[in-house]
C-alpha cells in the first residue's frame, strides 16, 4: 500500500474518531436525568408511564394507526433508540422490526440479554400456539397469539416485567416503582371486578380464578354474580355473543369478556380471504345471526364491508393500542363500548 494511501487512511479514521469523541461533548445533557425509555407500542408507553411516573421519559416508536407487525425500521426510529436506557417491546415475534431498529441504533445497553431490554410478554401465558410450525398455516406466531395486552389480567404481568426493567436501570427508584406498580394493579382490579367483589373475595383470588378461566363458574356457584362490578358487570351483555373478526387479533379480549369469535375473515393469519372462504363466513354469519365484524383500523375494510352488506351486519373498527390522549383504561373501555353497542 502506498504511503499516500496510508496517510489518507490515517486521516480519515482519525477524523472519524475525532467526530465520535467530540459528540460526547456536544451531546446535550438529558432533561432532569430522567430514565429514557423507548417502547414499540403506545400501550407499553402507558404502562411504563404508570409504573415509572415522573422518573421516566417515554418515546413510542410505532404510530397507533400502524399495524404493529409491519412498522418500517426507519433511521429516525434507530436514532430515537440510540440514547434509550430501556427498550420495551411485547415480544412473541409481534414486532420483528424492533430488532432491526436496535441493530441500527448502536446502543449496546438495549441489546438482547442486556439490562436495558424488556420483553414484556415474559411469563405471560399465550393461546393458539401452533402445534406444527409451517408457513402452510399462514404467517403464524410460533410462541402463540401475541396480542396479550387486550386482556387486563395478562397486562398485570406485563406491568410487573416493566417494573423489573425499570428497577434494573434505575435501582434508586425501586421502592417508588413498587408503589406505583401496586397502585396500577389495584386500579386494574377495581376496573375489572369492581370494589364489592374485591372486598368479598380479594383481588388475588379473583385474578387466580380469572387466569384459570374459572371466575364465572365460581361466581355462579357461590351466587356472587350480583356482586360483580367494573367492566365485567358493565359488559356482561357481551357474554355468549358471537362476532366475526378480520385477523386473530381480539381473542384475549373475547376470552376475558366471554364473547365468541365464530370465524376470522382471514382464512389463515396474514393471508387475505379467498372468495370461497368469504362465502363460508357469510353463510356462518347468516346461520348464526352474527351482526358484528370487528377489525383493527389499519386493515383494508373492503372485504369486511362487502361481507357486512351481504349479511346486513355492522363493521366496527378499533385501534389495537391506545390513541393519543388515551390511557389503557380508556382504550379498553372504548373498544368494549363499541362492541356492546353493536351486539345489543
Amino acid at each position: 500500500m502506498s504511503r499516500i494511501a496510508l496517510n489518507h487512511l490515517a486521516l480519515v479514521w482519525g477524523g472519524l474518531l475525532a467526530v465520535s469523541l467530540s459528540s460526547l461533548l456536544v451531546t446535550p445533557s438529558r432533561a432532569e436525568e430522567k430514565i429514557e425509555v423507548v417502547t414499540t407500542l403506545t400501550v407499553l408507553s402507558d404502562l411504563v408511564q404508570s409504573v415509572g411516573g415522573d422518573s421516566v421519559h417515554v418515546v413510542t416508536l410505532a404510530d397507533p394507526s400502524q399495524d404493529p407487525h409491519f412498522v418500517q425500521p426507519r433511521p429516525t426510529l434507530m436514532k430515537r433508540s440510540r440514547e434509550a436506557d430501556l427498550f420495551v417491546e411485547v415480544g412473541l415475534q409481534l414486532e420483528l422490526w424492533a430488532q432491526k431498529v436496535i441493530d441500527g441504533a448502536g446502543n449496546p445497553g438495549i441489546l438482547l440479554g442486556q439490562s436495558g431490554r424488556v420483553i414484556s410478554s415474559k411469563g405471560v401465558p399465550t393461546v393458539q400456539k401452533p402445534e406444527v410450525l409451517s408457513r402452510a398455516a399462514g404467517d403464524i406466531h410460533p410462541y402463540g397469539n401475541p396480542h396479550i395486552w387486550l386482556d387486563p389480567v395478562r397486562v398485570r404481568k406485563m406491568a410487573e416485567n416493566i417494573k423489573d426493567g425499570l428497577d434494573r436501570v434505575n435501582p434508586k427508584e425501586v421502592k417508588r416503582n413498587e408503589e406505583k406498580l401496586n397502585a396500577l394493579l389495584d386500579k386494574l382490579d377495581t376496573a375489572l371486578y369492581g370494589e364489592k367483589l374485591i372486598k368479598a373475595l380479594g383481588s388475588r383470588k379473583l385474578n387466580r380464578l380469572a387466569r384459570q378461566e374459572k371466575l364465572f363458574p365460581y361466581l355462579e356457584r357461590k351466587e356472587l354474580i350480583q356482586d360483580l362490578g367494573g367492566w365485567l358487570a358493565l359488559f356482561l351483555p357481551l357474554r355468549g355473543k358471537k362476532i366475526v373478526t378480520y385477523h386473530k387479533t381480539w381473542d384475549y379480549l373475547a376470552a376475558r369478556f366471554g364473547f365468541e369469535i365464530a370465524l376470522t375473515l382471514e382464512e389463515k393469519p396474514g393471508i387475505p380471504p379467498s372468495a370461497r372462504h368469504r362465502d363460508r363466513v357469510i353463510q356462518t354469519m347468516k346461520d348464526s345471526g352474527i351482526k358484528t365484524i370487528l377489525m383493527a383500523t389499519y386493515y383494508d375494510r373492503k372485504v369486511a364491508d362487502a361481507v357486512a352488506r351481504e349479511v346486513g351486519a355492522e363493521v366496527i373498527t378499533a385501534s389495537l393500542v391506545p390513541l393519543e390522549g388515551q390511557d389503557y383504561f380508556m382504550f379498553l373501555e372504548s373498544i368494549l363500548h363499541l362492541l356492546k353497542e353493536s351486539v345489543e
Partner: peptide, 17 residues
Amino acid sequence: LVLKKIPGLEKTPLGLT
C-alpha cells in the same frame, strides 16, 4: 461481523457500529 459495541467503551459514541 458486526461489532455493536466497541471494546473498552461503555457506550459507543454516536452509535458507532
